[in-house]
Design a protein around this nucleic acid. Structure first.
Lengths: 339, 339
DNA sequence: CTGTTAGCGCATTCAG
DNA sequence: CTGAATGCGCTAACAG
C-alpha cells in the first residue's frame, strides 16, 4: 500500500541506505545516482515516515509549542509568527493548548512531548515545578513571556518600562487620579501583571501622587473583565480621570463601560492600553506597543540556532523594544473635574 | 539515559508486552500486575515513545490541522476549540500554517503529514488538486469552511442565508443604495465570498433594486482592506447609505474610514458585518453571528467519531446555525439623503 | 493471564 | 562511492 524506502530502493536498483543518503542530501552518493533516486522517489510519491526516521535517528524535526490560549490575539499572533519560522526550516509544530488547570496539569505530569520534540517554545510562564519538568526533557527551551529563567531563552519586553511609560504619559497630561485595570493576579508566578503594577506604583510615587487602592481593579485580561473593572472604578466616590489598562483587550472593555455610562473618551476619562492589538488602531486606542510578531519569530529563530549549534551557550534573555503610541483616547483632564 | 519500556519491564519483573498492555489499558493483565506496573512506570517517569509506538501500531494519535492564518480571529478561535476536543481525547495536534502560496504548495506536494496523522482538519478550502492530495492520505478528513466536498466532513454555515439576512435587514430599514465590501476574490475555489455575493445580488433583485457595480469593493478580509474599500465606495458619485461587509474585520476597517470622513454611523451610513468577532460587541457592530467555537469543536468531534468507527458512513455536510445580531451600526437612512 | 517472536521503516555503523 | 547488517522502542500475533 504505502510506499516505503524499500520500494524506492528496488525501483532505483540501489540499496535502502543509498536512498536514505541521497534523499537527505548527505555526502557519499554520486550526483548521477542521487538524481536518479530523486526522480524515482518523486514518481512513486515517496515521503519518509517521520516515525521511523525519528525512531532511528533520535531527531524528530518537530517543535512543541505550549500556550495558555490560542484564540486570544497575542498568543495567536506569536504562534503564527513562530510557526512560519519553524516550518521554513523544515520543522513541524506540535501544539498544546493549556488553558485550563486540568489540561495544564495533565500536560506537565504526563509530558506527552517527551521523545517527540526537538525543542519547546512556551507562550506561558511555567511555575518552578513546571519549568523543572520542561528542563527534564533535555531539549532547548524558549519563551516569549515572563522574565529570565534558568534553562530558557526568553524573548520578552521590559514590562516595567512599558507600563511606566503609559502611566507617565497620563501624569504628564496632568492627571492625578489615575486608575489601573490589572491582569489576572491569580497564578502567583505570572509575573507580567506584577511588573506592570510595580511600574504604576513607582510612577505615581515619583510624581508625588498618593496611591489609592480603590483605583485598582482586576480585569482578568479579558474584554468583559475590563468592562467590569471599569464599572467598579466608576462606582468609587471619586472616580479616576484616567485609566491604565494592562492589556488592550481590557482597555476595550473599559471603553465600552465608559460608553455605557455616557462618559466621553478622552474628554471625561483617558484610557491607555498595552499590546497594540491589531484593532487598537481601528479604535484609536493609545497604547504601549510590543513587537508581538517579532517576539514569536525571534524566539523561534533562537531555538533553531540552538538546534544547529547544541554546544554554543544559549542566550538567556533578549529584550525587545517597546514604544508608546499616542492615539485618541488620552488627553489632559477636563477642567471641570471628573464626571 | 531516557527510560524505555524494557527498563520498566525489568524493574517490574515482567515482559515488555505485559507492560505495553498494562499501560494502555488493554485486557489480558491482572489488576494486581497492572497496578504494580503503573507504580513502577510512574517511579521511573516512563512515557512511551510516540515514534516507536506509531511505527509499530500504525496509529499516531495525532491530528493534522491546516490553516491559512492563525493570528486572525476566526481561525485562531476555531483552532482553539478543536484543539481542546482533540487533546481531551488523547490526540495531539500538528499545526500547519499555510498562509503563503509557497508554504501551501510545499505542503501539498510533500505532504509532510503522510504517515504522521490519523486525521486532518482543514481550516482552508482546498482546490480540487489539493483535495485529492488530502484524500490520498486515506485518513478521515474534515473542514470548517466552504461547501460540501467529496471525502470531507464539512461543518459550515449557510453563507447565502447569512449574507441574505444581513442585506435584507438593510433593505427593510429602507436603504436603496447598499454597498458591499467583499472578501478576497482571488483564489477562485474560495467559495465563501462568492456565496455571500450571490446572496447580496439576490436580495437586491428581490427588492427591485438595480445592482450598481460601483457599489462593490474588495476588502481582502482585512481591516486595512475594509478601510480602503470603504474609502473607494465613498468616492463614488452617489455613495451608499448602507454597507454590507463580508467580515467583521472589514466592517471595522469601514467604520474607521467613515470616521475619518467625518461621517456618523449609523446616522449617515449603516454598516453590517459577518462573523460576530469577539470585539464586534465592544464596537456595537451589527453582524451575522456564526458559532465559530462550535464549528471547531463539532468538526473535531466528528473526526474523532470517524476514528472510533472507521466503517460508519461519515456525515458529509453539517450546517451550523447563524443569526443576525442587531446592534448600533444600522438604522434607517437619513431623511436628508446620503452624506 | 503472560512471555516469545517478529517486524514497523528508517538511519547508521561497518565493510567493501 | 555503495551495500549489508544492526537496532531505535514499541505493538501484535502467536504460543504457552
Amino acid at each position: 500500500m504505502t510506499v516505503s524506502i524499500t520500494d524506492v530502493a528496488r525501483a532505483a536498483g540501489v540499496s535502502t541506505s543509498t536512498v536514505s543518503r541521497a534523499l537527505r542530501g548527505r555526502p557519499g552518493v554520486s550526483d548521477e545516482v542521487r538524481a536518479q533516486i530523486a526522480t524515482v522517489a518523486a514518481q512513486l510519491g515517496y515521503t519518509a515516515s517521520r516515525s521511523a526516521s525519528s525512531l532511528a535517528s533520535g531527531r524528530t524535526f518537530t517543535i512543541g509549542v505550549i500556550a495558555p490560549y490560542i484564540g486570544r490575539w497575542f498568543f495567536g499572533t506569536v504562534l503564527d509568527a513562530a510557526e512560519k519560522v519553524f516550518s521554513a526550516a523544515g520543522y513541524d509544530v506540535l501544539l498544546y493548548n493549556l488553558g485550563t488547570p486540568e489540561t495544564r496539569k495533565r500536560f506537565f505530569t504526563r509530558l506527552p512531548v517527551r521523545k517527540r520534540v526537538d525543542a519547546v517554545l512556551s507562550l506561558l510562564i511555567p511555575d518552578e515545578e513546571e519549568a523543572a519538568a520542561l528542563r527534564s526533557l533535555e531539549v532547548p527551551l524558549a519563551s516569549t513571556v515572563g522574565g529570565a529563567r534558568e534553562g530558557f531563552t526568553v524573548v520578552g519586553i521590559d514590562d516595567h518600562a512599558g507600563a511606566a511609560s503609559a502611566v507617565r504619559h497620563l501624569v504628564n497630561l496632568g492627571h492625578r487620579r489615575i486608575g489601573m485595570i490589572s491582569g489576572a493576579s491569580e497564578p502567583l508566578h505570572w509575573t507580567t501583571p506584577l511588573a506592570r503594577r510595580r511600574a504604576y506604583l513607582d510612577v505615581l510615587a515619583d510624581a508625588g501622587i498618593e496611591h489609592d487602592p480603590k483605583l485598582e481593579a482586576d480585569g482578568g485580561y479579558t474584554v468583559e473583565g475590563g468592562e467590569q473593572a471599569m464599572t467598579e472604578l466608576l462606582a468609587a466616590s471619586r472616580p479616576p480621570t484616567a485609566v491604565f489598562a494592562q492589556s488592550d483587550e481590557m482597555a476595550m472593555g473599559a471603553l465600552r463601560a465608559l460608553r455605557r455610562h455616557r462618559l466621553r473618551v478622552p474628554d471625561d476619562v483617558s484610557v491607555v492600553g498595552f499590546d497594540d492589538h491589531e484593532l487598537a488602531e481601528v479604535i484609536g486606542l493609545t497604547t504601549v506597543a510590543q513587537p508581538v510578531t517579532g517576539q514569536g519569530a525571534e524566539a523561534a529563530r533562537l531555538l533553531l540556532e540552538q538546534l544547529d549549534a547544541p554546544d554554543a551557550e544559549p542566550p538567556g534573555h533578549v529584550q525587545m523594544p517597546i514604544r508608546l503610541i499616542l492615539r485618541e483616547t488620552t488627553a489632559p483632564p477636563s477642567p471641570r473635574g471628573p464626571q
